[in-house]
């Protein structure tokens, strides 16, 4: 699913440099990425999503050379093939739960908002246990419920790759386990690949593989 070769990236005017000689994730794998703060974990996710462009090297996702795409194509690729789950959920307060879930379909011409999509959104909400909250404002939800909304939004376009950046970072222990269960179940149901950045070592046993960013050694 993911192939990274001879990747080199640095932010303009900053000391940070990321070098990844080789990195890969197989389709359907559930990979956790760990490492100290500032080691480039979130940067990797942004490079894989096409938000950032490497100065050197190749990035291939689901058979697409993301690093070679145009800006417009990268956005279209990102919104339709990649689901992003953020630590702080990044929901829009002024939209209700359903509108937040449908949001990607409203802001990109690459996705079409049809009746079928609405029905899928409702089904996703049912699967996540928030079907009775679809018309509520998101600021009335608990942290766990918000992350479930974020999961629905990420999964609605049926992405092949789900990138989760500290998806359980803001949750209490009980919710963490629950959200992770939901995430894994959804990944499995959608035949998707999961690459999750996490600081929480308690969750590592749930993953198929753990990649330590500090030395790029794979730990099965």
């Amino acid at each position: 699913m993911i192939r990274v070769e001879s990747l080199a990236f640095s932010y303009a005017g900053a000391e940070f440099h990321l070098r990844i000689p080789e990195f890969s994730v197989e389709a359907g794998e559930r990979v956790a990425v760990i490492g100290p703060s500032g080691s480039g974990k979130t940067t990797l996710l942004n490079l894989l999503a096409g938000i950032l462009v490497p100065q050197e090297g190749q990035i291939e996702c689901a058979g697409v050379r993301v690093s070679s795409l145009s800006d417009c194509d990268r956005r279209a690729f990102r919104i339709s093939r990649i689901g992003f789950v953020f630590q702080d959920f990044q929901l829009l307060d002024y939209l209700n739960v359903l509108d937040n879930i449908l949001h990607p379909f409203r802001i990109s011409e690459a996705l079409r908002l049809t009746r079928h999509v609405r029905e899928r959104a409702a089904e996703l909400g049912r699967q996540m246990g928030i079907e009775d909250k679809l018309h509520r404002r998101v600021d009335h939800l608990s942290q766990g419920e918000k992350q479930r909304v974020a999961l629905c939004r990420a999964l609605l376009p049926s992405p092949g790759l789900v990138l989760a950046d500290e998806a359980t970072g803001n949750l209490d222990p009980r919710n963490k386990e629950h959200i992770l269960e939901l995430l894994f179940a959804s990944i499995k149901a959608h035949n998707a690949t999961l690459l999750a950045v996490t600081h929480d070592h308690d969750l590592l046993p749930h993953f198929d593989r753990v990649v330590d960013f500090s030395n790029f050694r794979s730990a099965a």
Binding site: I51, I79, Q90, I107, S108
Partner: peptide, 20 residues
């Protein structure tokens, strides 16, 4: 800014922001 960043990260463009 945060909302704009979210839109951008999930696949929206600057023209999306401008349209909104």
């Amino acid at each position: 800014q945060r909302e704009i960043e979210t839109v951008f990260r999930i696949g929206g463009s600057r023209s999306t922001i401008a349209r909104l």
